[in-house]
Design a protein around this nucleic acid. Structure first.
Lengths: 239, 239
DNA sequence: GCCGATTTGTCCGTATGTATC
DNA sequence: CGATACATACGGACAAATCGG
């Protein structure tokens, strides 16, 4: 993102994370920041809005812009924003490894269409992957990709990073992801591929993802061992 | 919310939900909507942005604004946005009942401070409530409210709706809520108050909530029986 | 491939309203 | 009351992507 407001957002975010503006302190006023960044009022406000939506700040009418971000809350395995497994691991300094368990091409029948939200007859890649963290199999991912959107998907790409391939090779951009979190009993497959210890349930994240053309190109079921799962989210009233 | 952009947002949201603009169709162009709503370009864009953040639309550069909202996905027990238990039930047409299990005033010691994010020495109300849906005890809420922010909290208020009291009586506004979802083993208390059937784990939503003054005034642990729990969320790249 | 019309995306400057101090 | 700070809205300008001729 090379837009001005986005760079201001990144800069202010870093300044907050580095402690220049600590929790419960006020950042400089809008007019001061407009001078500092040499931008317009509207552009700065747009950057502030992004910070707000991410839970960094809370502007208070007539007073100032308060920092409500605390380091320890954010320093976890963040899932709420759109971020690939690889990105999330790098951000959190976790050593991880992915193994591809199966890679097939299928046509959506009625049952698969209902489960994934794709249309009956759609050609799909079905990928099963297991995510290992520090040697333990903790996450079991089942992806369905729309074949027409990802023409040349191969097991190699899938083992590396699908999102890297999508963004860099295809030049396609992921924009919206609708997620839901639920808790389910372990399946036979879970028991086979995951190191479940004595857990009898898994946390399941279902993601329906759209690209910048508005094409629903991916549905993923991500099954996590409970003790390694947290889903973070910031909700804002009004807007 | 009486602002223009928010009313436009609500109107367009309703038009999408009522089927005037179906899934994968384009809504009228910005210029057409500016004429229809007799507002400025920027104001309309602000409304569109709210729709986008809620997963209703996806604007496509140079083409138009695509609808990506589907009725069945949204027609559940939505939790992702800030919404009280009462509001959520009304929106989903669920008959629910709340019983207060305990209501005490405490001072935060080291352990409570770490758990809740409040400071040691803060005066807090500790409230335990059980949410019954169709007669079954399904949700066990443990709230910690900052006493200085909610001066006159009583068991009666707590049984009705704390959020109604906060917003209407105190005139205080809830703006930001940081949530995390995890899965935990059932506790002794869970087993006592909830109708757990044979479930051995619960879904736990931890919420840290700020008011419009930037004061962290509530931390809540909401423990759900797994089969009645889903957490919905829309993530957008670039914001 | 090019051009022009349409549509979304970004940015600016300004004005006015409202809450806080 | 006035000064400061955030909130909303307007109008105009240009960039960038898409599409059809």
């Amino acid at each position: 993102m090379r837009s001005i407001y986005y760079e201001i957002f990144e800069d202010l975010r870093d300044r907050i994370e580095e402690g220049e503006f600590p929790y419960q302190s006020y950042i400089p006023s809008e007019s001061a920041l407009v001078e500092e960044y040499e931008c317009s009022h509207n552009t700065l406000r747009k950057a502030l809005n992004v910070l707000r939506l991410h839970g960094y700040i809370q502007p208070i009418h007539g007073k100032g812009v308060l920092v409500i971000w605390q380091p320890d809350v954010h320093a976890r395995f963040v899932l709420g924003d759109i971020e690939s497994f690889r990105e999330a691991c790098e951000r959190n300094g976790i050593r991880a490894h992915t193994s591809v368990r199966s890679f097939t091409q299928i046509t959506a029948d009625k049952q698969i269409a209902e489960m994934t939200g794709f249309a009956i007859g759609d050609r799909l890649y079905r990928v099963e992957r297991v995510r290992h963290i520090n040697g333990a199999a903790l996450i079991y991912d089942i992806n369905y990709f729309l074949a027409s959107a990802l023409p040349e998907l191969t097991p190699d790409i899938v083992e590396d990073s699908v999102y890297l391939y999508i963004e860099e090779t295809l030049g396609m951009h992921i924009t919206t992801s609708k997620r839901s979190v639920s808790v389910e009993h372990v399946s036979v497959a879970d028991r086979m591929v995951l190191d479940l210890l004595d857990y009898t349930m898994v946390a399941v994240v279902t993601s329906v993802t759209f690209n910048s053309d508005g094409v629903h190109f991916e549905t993923t079921f991500s099954r996590h061992r409970p003790d390694f799962f947290t889903f973070h989210n910031t909700a804002v009233r009004g807007y």
